[in-house]
Nucleic acid binder design. Structure first.
Length: 258
DNA sequence: ATGGCTGAGCTACTCAGA
């Protein structure tokens, strides 16, 4: 069972890249973020043609998340967070994998920059609510997968130059602490669990040749509840989509479980 | 290097991203 998370930075501008990627990587479930469109303009048919159903929590111009799946996804919900700005950032669903019910939480955490602004406050409040709701979710479900763009650099080694990001909304200690708080509820950051010291990134800026210089950061994550850890087959950051023409600034992270 | 690109909405330019 292959589950992939990818911040596509507009599903409509990226549709050709996404379809090509799906044909190559053949995910069972693709969790996408920053689709930047409302449901009414979502390219449902394009995914249907290659055998995928889409579940969409859209928004005009900004944000938006979707679950694109070859297997049945039940109990789709778009109200995981009571978002004070009414932004579309979380979609959840349930899948049956090898007789166990697994809850999927596809998330796009607010960016929060600049730090001296209301945006940073929104991110902090948003993360507080998110952690609290995950805690509640654990009372109802034992198998949880949280995946998406967390906009959090977990540790110093997860960015090309930590000094530049220690006072940034992605790297500030109080933000990284929220990530640890989440893990402490009973999750593992699967990439870091499998690769203790490896330095790989999931995002590179469009400008100043960031991609060519490998000036990136690891901000897209797969969190698995501890009871699912023995079912991990592999975790992989696939850099190929970032090297294509008209790429997203993020690249997919691929999880395989049994 | 707090903006050097990119996308949406719109059709000139702002806002947002990280």
């Amino acid at each position: 069972m292959k589950i992939i998370s990818w911040n596509v930075n507009s599903v409509r501008a990226r549709i050709t890249n996404i379809l090509n990627y799906i044909k190559q990587s053949k995910p069972d479930i693709l969790l996408i973020q920053e689709i930047k469109t409302q449901e009414e303009n979502f390219p449902y048919e394009e995914f249907e043609k290659i055998g995928y159903q889409s579940h969409v929590f859209g928004q005009k111009s900004y944000n938006g998340v979707a679950i694109i799946s070859k297997i049945e996804v039940k109990n789709i919900k778009k109200n995981f967070i009571n978002d004070e700005l009414k932004q579309s950032r979380v979609i959840t669903g349930e899948v049956q994998i090898k007789k166990s019910n697994i809850k999927l939480i596809n998330v796009y955490v607010p960016n929060g920059n600049p730090v001296e602004s209301e945006k940073y406050n929104y991110k902090k409040k948003w993360l507080n609510k998110f952690v609290l709701n995950i805690k509640k979710e654990f009372e109802k479900y034992s198998n949880l997968i949280i995946a998406g763009d967390f906009n959090i650099i977990p540790e110093e080694k997860d960015v090309y130059n930590f000094k530049r990001y220690e006072n940034d909304a992605l790297g500030k200690l109080e933000i990284r602490k929220k990530f640890r708080e989440l893990l402490n509820l009973g999750f593992k950051d699967v990439y870091r669990l499998k690769f203790k010291e490896k330095q790989e990134y999931t995002f590179w800026d469009y400008f100043a040749g960031s991609w060519q210089k490998n000036y990136g950061m690891r901000i897209d994550h797969f969190l698995l509840s501890n009871n699912l850890l023995d079912r991990i087959v592999s975790i992989n950051i696939n850099k190929i989509p970032r090297s294509k023409t008209k790429p997203s600034d993020h690249t997919p992270i691929e999880l395989e479980i049994i």
